[in-house]
């Protein structure tokens, strides 16, 4: 026992800067619900990437004229939509839109939010006052109304959906990062770095951002879920992705129009949205427990 302990010590010291993440991963992988969420998300990503191979029919061009609104059958597990297209294939292709918007909008908003938050938190003074008011303004705006107007102005498409959502939901990240950076600014290692003449950008990038990464990652993984709901709400209102391209919100909108005659159209996209959002939220919760040891018992 004694010898192994001695042998282990130098190794441990070498990997010390990585062990934090490794421990976080161990805590995360011990969380069954979070791992299930991760598996579901991986499956969804595979489904989106290999959609043409999985989907039995083309989601746009394969139209079964005699089968409009026919319910589920063994050959067509989700039935047909109101135009006679295979719903199963459309749902599979719809995952592409959901994941693209969910992930890329989150990326955009994280980049904007972290930049704004760290500038406001680090420099303080006037830049903080101005940026904080902008953050407050965005937070006070009813986000869905803002999205509707912006989508109407720019014209609905996949790109505008991604950009518009990304450009409007960053305020949460900015707030968190700003608060964390402000408290980090007082810490000894930052003061030491300053005293050594390290440029501000390098202090923020090298010394501060790694410390605020945890909460941002947690918020981002929780944010993907809410963005997927936002995207489907936009598509549901006809302001998301343009109609022939299948998206879950769009299929849901078709389902709403025919809810009294073909209720099955609306059921499946909704279930997919719930599963996807649940999976991302589970990952987010697991990450929070893994990255924030304060909450651990």
């Amino acid at each position: 026992m004694a010898t192994t302990a001695v042998n282990l010590k130098p190794q441990e010291r070498k990997t010390e800067h990585r062990s934090e993440w490794r421990r976080a991963w161990r805590r995360f992988s011990a969380n069954r619900v979070a791992v299930i969420g991760l598996i579901v998300v991986i499956l969804l990503i595979l489904m989106a990437v290999f959609a043409p191979l999985i989907a039995p029919y083309d989601p746009i061009t394969d139209i079964f004229r005699g089968q409009r609104g026919v319910g589920p059958s063994p050959d067509h597990p989700m039935g047909f939509d109101h135009l006679g297209r295979d719903l199963f294939s459309r749902i599979i292709f719809g995952s592409r839109v959901a994941l693209i918007v969910g992930i890329f909008s989150t990326l955009i908003s994280v980049i904007i939010g972290v930049t704004v938050g760290s500038v406001a938190g680090f420099f303080g003074g006037w830049s903080d006052r101005v940026l904080s008011r902008i953050i407050d303004t965005l937070m006070a705006f009813p986000i869905i109304a803002l999205l509707i107007v912006l989508a109407a102005v720019l014209g609905p498409s996949l790109l505008t959906t991604v950009v518009v959502i990304g450009a409007t939901v960053w305020s949460r990240y900015a707030r968190v990062v700003r608060a964390d950076i402000m408290s980090l600014r007082q810490r000894d290692f930052v003061i030491a770095a300053r005293a050594l003449g390290v440029p501000n950008s390098r202090i923020i990038w090298r010394h501060m951002l790694p410390n605020v990464l945890g909460p941002v990652i947690v918020l981002a993984s929780l944010g993907v879920g809410s963005i997927i709901i936002l995207e489907s709400a936009l598509s549901f209102l006809g302001l998301g992705v343009r109609p022939p391209i299948p998206s879950w919100g769009g299929i849901l909108a078709d389902g709403r129009a025919f809810i009294l005659r073909y209720p099955h159209i609306a059921i499946f996209p909704g279930i997919m949205i719930v599963i996807t959002v649940l999976a991302f939220n589970f990952i987010g919760d697991g990450l929070r427990d893994a990255l924030d040891p304060r909450e651990m018992e």
């Binding site: 709901i229 849901l252 709403r256 609306a266 059921i267 909704g270 949205i273 719930v274 959002v277 649940l278």
Partner: peptide, 18 residues
């Protein structure tokens, strides 16, 4: 509560109507 947060309310409304 996890389900409630993950369910889009416009879809829930449709399902309840159905």
């Amino acid at each position: 509560s996890a389900l409630g947060i993950a369910t889009p309310n416009f879809w829930l409304a449709l399902m309840l109507i159905v």
